[in-house]
Each structure stands twice: as C-alpha cells, then as structure tokens.
Computed example of a mutant assay.
Amino acid sequence: MLNWAIAGTSFISTTIADRIAASAGSQCMHVFGRNPARTAVFASRYGCAATTDFDMILNDPAVDIVYVGLPNDVHYAFCERALHHGKAVLCEKSLTTRWDDAQLLFAAAQRSGRLFMEGFAYFHHPLIASLQTVLREGRAGKLKYVQASYSADIVKFANPAGGGSIFNLGCYPVSLLQLVIQTVFGPEVFTRGEITGAGFNADGGPITEASLTIRYEQGLLASIHSSDTFGLRSDLSIHGEIGTIVFKTNPWLPEAGINRMELQHHDGRVEVIDVESELDGFGHQIRNAEDSFKANRAVPLSPARSIHDSLEIMQVLTSWHQACERGSKP
C-alpha cells in the first residue's frame, strides 16, 4: 500500500485524490492546505487527516509520497522540503516557473535518490505508448513537421504568478514534442533546436497567448501555440513524408475507454488507431507511482518523464517565455 499526502486542495488535487481512492494500491493519509476550512472539507471527503502544517506531513514516517498540487511558483520550495525528508514526490506540472528553481529542484531530486515524477499524467496512458510504436516503426515516414495547440478559457482562474499560458498549457505540447524528438532522433536533440517565439499579454500581466517555432537540423520544424483565453481545444498533428498522425481525441487528457488517432496516408488511405484503457491518464499515473515506488526506483517507469526530462522541458519553456517577453504586446 502506497501512503500518500496531498499538498493543495484545488481541482487538480481533487482529481488526484479521486484516483488514489479508486486504487487498491494507494491510500491518502494527509492533506495540507493553507485555508483551514477548505482543507477540513477536503479531508472529510477523502477520509484523511487535515493540516495547515506541512512539517507534520514531512515528519510522519508512514507517509511514502507527497503529491504537490500547489501553485507552480511554490513547487520548488515544497518539493525540495519533501525530498530532503526522504519522501518520494509527484509534482504537478509545470515543474516550476523559474529556470534557476528548476535547476535547484533537479539537484535536490538527484541528491535524495527518491522517486520524483512531474505530473504530466497523459504520458502514463497507453495512448502515448501506441504513438511511440507508430513513430518507431516509421509508419509516417521521415518526420517533417509537428503542429500542436492547446487552449482553455482559464485566464480568470490562473495564478498570476504562474508564468502565464506557456507554463499553464504550453507545457503540454512542449513535453509531447520532447517525446516525439526522443523517440525518433534520440535523447540529445530536443534542447538543440533554434527557438523563436511571440506572444500577447493583457495590461502588462502574464502572457496569455503564445506561439513557438523550433527548427531542428534533422530537417524537422515544430510549431506550438497555447492560449489561456478561449475554449477547451487540443490540436496535434505529426507530419511525415508518408503520412500524418492526427489525434482525434485530446492527447493531453486521455480518458478511460477509447482514445483515437489516425494515420492519414498521403495516398488517401486512413489507418484508425483506437487505444482502449480501463483507466484515464491520472489513474495510470497513480499506478505508475505505485509500481515505481515498489521497485525502489528514483526514475519512474517509461514513458513517464524523468527529472532530467523535466529539466529539459523547463529549458525550452524558459527560452520560449524569454522570446515572448522580448516581443510581447498588450
């Protein structure tokens, strides 16, 4: 049984707590929150202990793993403390909002030797393993272009210190681009692309709309867009010389049941690739944490991201943000 403590009482913490409760291999022991009333309600719902003292969680030897679902600008502080106390950590994305904090967190995870996972739940779903199979088999041909966009109307609810759309939503397509690059070209290519970016902000606040282009010497171009200002829409297409992989369901929120992508051949043939699963991405993430912890791993089971992968993602997000900051317009 994997004993969890949850830091944070937001919607995403509720999602994680639901999946912990649904798993026979996990249980939630504590919830930490900064609002006593809200924390008490959360604890009552999930049958765990409520606290506003994070040290109480850290000093409980029965706690195996801490889920940090707090705002991303405080991820480093809470994750570092948990790792220092010998706890495994599942840190919600984005890893941090600052490159220097990301480097410090990487070092803390390396020192601790404990399991560290960034909360890109979708990586754990078999949909992503199926994508890797298609890529490894070269069924789309030599890759030429990746196009990805993720948008949601969350600007009114977003943490103003959270880095804006790039860190809220742009991290999803950037992380998936990393997986594509690693699968096709190997582990040393992702951060070597030539980056250009542009964005808009409102009244001098966080960037709410951003675009990113990356040029790779291997002959691949990538175009990514994110927005905090409209809809709930995902678009992902991976173009090769033989055909294009198109996701017909949301690649970043894969569900229990059937998820679909198509390989649309340039000669007109279409391969429908349905991936059925009993769990959604969050459920698979909990299962991976259980299996990885049981195996005494510091790195989660693939294709989940390692802390090194997370640091690379932060490097690209930071470069994108800097490019937008130089040229962003209200």
Score class of each variant (00 low, 15 high):
residue 287 R to V: 15
residue 301 L to V: 08
residue 147 Q to A: 09
residue 43 A to C: 07
residue 125 H to R: 06
residue 292 S to F: 04
residue 140 A to K: 06
residue 156 K to E: 02
residue 22 A to D: 05
residue 46 Y to N: 05
residue 111 R to H: 05
residue 223 S to A: 07
residue 79 C to R: 03
residue 167 F to I: 11
residue 78 F to L: 14
residue 28 C to E: 04
residue 297 R to I: 00
residue 27 Q to N: 09
residue 134 V to E: 14
residue 176 L to K: 15
residue 4 W to A: 04
residue 195 I to D: 00
residue 268 G to V: 03
residue 188 E to P: 12
residue 131 L to A: 07
residue 175 S to G: 13
residue 138 G to R: 11
residue 126 P to L: 02
residue 112 S to F: 00
residue 127 L to C: 06
residue 61 P to E: 03
residue 277 S to R: 10
residue 162 G to S: 09
residue 103 Q to D: 14
residue 165 S to V: 13
residue 124 H to I: 05
residue 47 G to T: 11
residue 12 I to C: 07
residue 198 A to G: 14
residue 282 F to V: 11
residue 249 T to A: 07
residue 176 L to T: 07
residue 257 G to Q: 06
residue 186 G to H: 14
residue 72 N to P: 15
residue 46 Y to M: 06
residue 235 D to Q: 01
residue 297 R to N: 08
residue 157 F to Q: 10
residue 281 G to V: 04
residue 276 E to V: 08
residue 324 C to P: 12
residue 316 V to E: 01
residue 288 N to I: 14
residue 103 Q to I: 03
residue 54 F to T: 01
residue 75 H to N: 14
residue 265 H to A: 12
residue 135 L to Y: 12
residue 246 V to W: 04
residue 218 Q to R: 08
residue 125 H to A: 03
residue 280 D to L: 05
residue 276 E to M: 10
residue 17 A to G: 09
residue 30 H to L: 11
residue 279 L to E: 08
residue 135 L to C: 12
residue 286 I to P: 02
residue 188 E to G: 05
residue 51 T to S: 14
residue 231 G to T: 11
residue 162 G to E: 08
residue 176 L to M: 13
residue 145 Y to H: 15
residue 233 R to L: 10
residue 187 P to T: 14
residue 48 C to Q: 08
residue 60 D to V: 03
residue 206 P to A: 06
residue 52 T to S: 14
residue 224 I to M: 05
residue 87 K to Q: 06
residue 43 A to I: 09
residue 294 K to H: 10
residue 305 R to T: 01
residue 14 T to A: 05
residue 315 Q to M: 14
residue 159 N to E: 04
residue 107 A to H: 11
residue 173 P to W: 03
residue 146 V to I: 15
residue 217 E to P: 00
residue 39 T to C: 14
residue 284 H to M: 03
residue 17 A to F: 00
residue 318 T to R: 13
residue 9 T to A: 10
residue 114 R to F: 00
residue 115 L to G: 00
residue 75 H to V: 01
residue 255 E to F: 10
residue 5 A to G: 04
residue 92 E to C: 04
residue 158 A to E: 10
residue 255 E to I: 12
residue 318 T to P: 10
residue 192 R to S: 15
residue 205 G to D: 07
residue 106 F to C: 04
residue 114 R to E: 00
residue 272 V to T: 13
residue 73 D to N: 15
residue 275 V to P: 09
residue 100 D to M: 13
residue 13 S to E: 13
residue 233 R to H: 12
residue 224 I to E: 02
residue 117 M to P: 03
residue 99 W to L: 13
residue 30 H to P: 02
residue 197 G to M: 02
residue 87 K to W: 00
residue 36 P to T: 10
residue 146 V to R: 07
residue 75 H to A: 10
residue 250 N to K: 00
residue 327 G to W: 00
residue 76 Y to M: 07
residue 307 I to Y: 01
residue 327 G to M: 04
residue 57 I to T: 03
residue 134 V to N: 12
residue 24 A to R: 15
residue 40 A to Y: 06
residue 111 R to Y: 01
residue 191 T to E: 14
residue 40 A to C: 05
residue 316 V to M: 08
residue 68 V to L: 05
residue 110 Q to K: 04
residue 316 V to Q: 03
residue 51 T to R: 01
